[in-house]
């Protein structure tokens, strides 16, 4: 089925994929590798190039340089063969407001030359059912809420059996209940063998439904791998809640730990935080963690020094910290 064996097990594969708009480099030489059967989280802050990458992968925009293969075939050359096997939600749902939800799906389904008209009504009905929109099928999309439109967008991606689903921010605008439903749906589809490529700026979402993830930052792919790989690397910290923050900092310094900041804002209790160890996933770095004092040693030392320890915690590196470390913090949209 595929011309080259090496990419047969990858649902999406890019090599040095670059997209430039004038002087602006939206996507900068990324090498994506999405294994078949994976639920792949495509993470990155707003403006990091996620949607542009998706547009290039689906043949909506032409890459400036580099290659992209989807389902083992080169894009956009094999667009005609590949896209009927791909369901997509791209940068939010978009529908004809003057048509009903079901009529919108009918309309978009006729655009797919491979979609048989005989089963269209049944497929539309089933897709609406899967996203819980059966009741609103006859309602004009104009009257839909944002969450309902989002559901309809997902239904559109499910109109035919797909080998790959590309879902750009699928839980946008959904209430917690809807978010849970989408997560369950993604898991179900993955269990059926569909590869799911989910872009998101919400880490929690990716942590809860993905097996793999990649992180984009300012057009570059800064990390990629299984979720466990990504979790393993990062920074762990100790956090001490105490009214004697100055003394605590001295003790930590004695153990070779640098206190990061002491926060004495609201209460008499201060929070002292220090980096315990830095892991980057590779072997050599774990050395540093070997040198790090054990948590119980730190507590004993603090108590021995008369520091009133009211709280103590070792904060493992969450994917969130990793994410922030990779993409930067704050509201600045990546340029």
């Amino acid at each position: 089925m595929t011309a080259e064996g090496h990419s047969a097990e990858l649902a999406i594969e890019t090599k040095g994929l670059t997209k430039r708009f004038g002087h602006q480099v939206a996507v900068n030489g990324i090498d994506l590798a999405v294994p078949r059967g994976a639920v792949f989280g495509f993470l990155g802050p707003n403006g990091s190039g996620k949607t542009t990458t998706i547009r290039v992968l689906l043949g909506l925009a032409a890459a400036t340089s580099g290659q992209a293969r989807v389902l083992g075939q080169e894009m956009p050359r094999s667009l005609r063969e590949v896209l009927p096997r791909v369901g997509a939600l791209i940068e939010g749902p978009a529908f004809y407001p003057f048509l009903s939800g079901a009529a919108n799906l009918h309309r978009l389904d006729t655009a797919d030359r491979d979609a048989p008209s005989r089963t269209r009504a049944a497929r539309v009905h089933l897709a609406l059912e899967r996203v819980g929109l059966t009741q609103a099928a006859g309602k004009k999309v104009r009257a839909y809420s944002l969450g309902m439109k989002q559901r309809l967008g997902i239904a559109n991606a499910l109109l035919a059996p797909r080998e790959l689903l590309v879902l750009d921010e699928p839980t946008n605008g959904l209430d917690p209940q809807g978010t849970r439903e989408v997560r369950a749906l993604v898991r179900l589809l993955a269990a059926e063998g569909t590869t799911v490529f989910v872009s998101s700026h919400l880490l929690a979402e990716v942590e809860q439904m993905c097996t793999h993830a990649a992180v984009m930052s300012a057009g570059r792919l800064v990390a990629q791998g299984t979720l466990d790989d990504l979790r393993r690397s990062g920074t762990s910290r100790v956090q001490i809640r105490t009214p004697d923050s100055a003394a605590a900092q001295r003790v930590l310094a004695g153990l070779g730990l640098m206190a990061e900041k002491s926060d004495q804002a609201a209460t008499a209790d201060g929070l002292v935080t220090a980096v315990l160890a830095v892991h980057t996933g590779t072997q050599e770095e774990s050395q540093e963690s070997r040198h790090a004092p054990k948590p119980e040693t730190i507590v004993a030392a603090l108590v021995a020094a008369g520091v009133r320890v009211r709280g103590f915690a070792v904060l493992g590196s969450s994917l969130e910290e990793r994410f922030v470390a990779l993409t930067g913090e704050g509201f600045d949209v990546a340029q």
């Binding site: 547009r55 043949g59 909506l60 005609r80 009927p84 940068e91 749902p93 978009l108 797919d112 559109n156």
Partner: peptide, 10 residues
């Protein structure tokens, strides 16, 4: 925005 959905239908 329906243009992108028509085109990826394809």
């Amino acid at each position: 925005g329906t243009l992108r959905y028509l085109l990826v239908a394809p």
